[in-house]
């Protein structure tokens, strides 16, 4: 009897948070309706903005895959001076207010040597996709790096040892054994980073109001035209993100 009360209490408390998280989304879709969502997605400004957001968030993820995965491996497998400091440093972006992060990025990369290098390659920073990508990356990279760290930690170093006695170099062992075994956690980390990057607004709006990514477009339409014009964009953005997110997760789970 006591068990049943305990479970019922937990179910009640859990259902409060489930409702809190789902009601706004359901209400949003119901208030907008499928027809309006369809019409809105056909609007060039909207689909260009959503596609830009998905694309730039993907670039940010790819960049962190190339740079963050090796870092995660080093942190897990090696002992080096300042390792704990770097680990703490990596978690800072998660704690910083997003607008403050935008200001910091602006100060660091819009001028000076880095600014000159970006300008030399015609990448620019303010009001460019480079700036948007930096903002997304700064605030969401820890998700991917921590996911990769988690994945590498689960791979016993002895697998690498065996591979090496079988003739594989350290890099061969990494690509043929360690990476495939940590793949699932890395993909999950990448998904978390990508979805976090898609929703980035605070830092992006400081660096680049244009080109307009979806969160900025939603804000812009809300500010200038009100809820009626911003809600369909928000609904479209959510549905596309969720569909992509679920597809990758299902494929990842199948590959496991």
């Amino acid at each position: 009897m006591k068990d049943r009360w305990f479970l019922s209490l937990f179910m009640f408390l859990g259902s409060i948070i489930v409702l809190f998280l789902t009601i706004p989304l359901i209400k949003l879709f119901m208030s907008v309706g499928i027809t309006t969502m369809g019409k809105t997605i056909l609007d060039a400004t909207v689909y260009n903005s959503i596609f830009l957001t998905l694309r730039v968030a993907l670039y940010a993820v790819l960049f962190v895959c190339i740079t963050g995965i090796p870092l995660a491996y080093l942190i897990v497998r090696s002992d080096f001076f300042g390792k704990s400091f770097i680990e703490s440093l990596l978690d800072i972006p998660v704690m910083v207010p997003h607008t403050a992060a935008g200001i910091a990025l602006l100060v660091a990369f819009s001028s000076g040597y880095v600014g000159d290098i970006l300008n030399f390659f015609h990448l620019g920073f303010i009001d460019t996709t480079t700036g948007v990508m930096s903002a997304m990356m700064f605030l969401s990279a820890p998700f991917l790096i921590n996911g990769a760290k988690e994945g590498f930690r689960k791979v016993d170093e002895k697998y690498e040892y065996v591979a090496r006695t079988l003739g594989a170099s350290k890099i061969d062992a990494f690509f043929t054994i360690v990476l495939p075994m940590a793949k699932s956690d890395i993909i999950n980390g990448a998904l978390m980073m990508w979805s976090r990057a898609l929703g980035e607004f605070g830092a992006v709006v400081i660096i680049a109001y244009h080109p307009m990514v979806a969160p900025v477009l939603i804000y812009d339409r809300f500010n200038n035209f009100g809820l009626k014009f911003s809600a369909p964009v928000a609904a479209d953005m959510i549905i596309i993100s969720v569909l992509i997110f679920l597809t990758i997760r299902v494929v990842n789970n199948r590959l496991r």
């Binding site: 002895k158 697998y159 040892y161 594989a168």
Partner: peptide, 16 residues
């Protein structure tokens, strides 16, 4: 290790 030509079998086998 990859140049030594020594085989290794661990107690927990470490099959990939």
């Amino acid at each position: 290790p990859e140049k030594r030509d020594f085989g290794f079998v661990y107690q927990d086998f470490m099959l990939f």
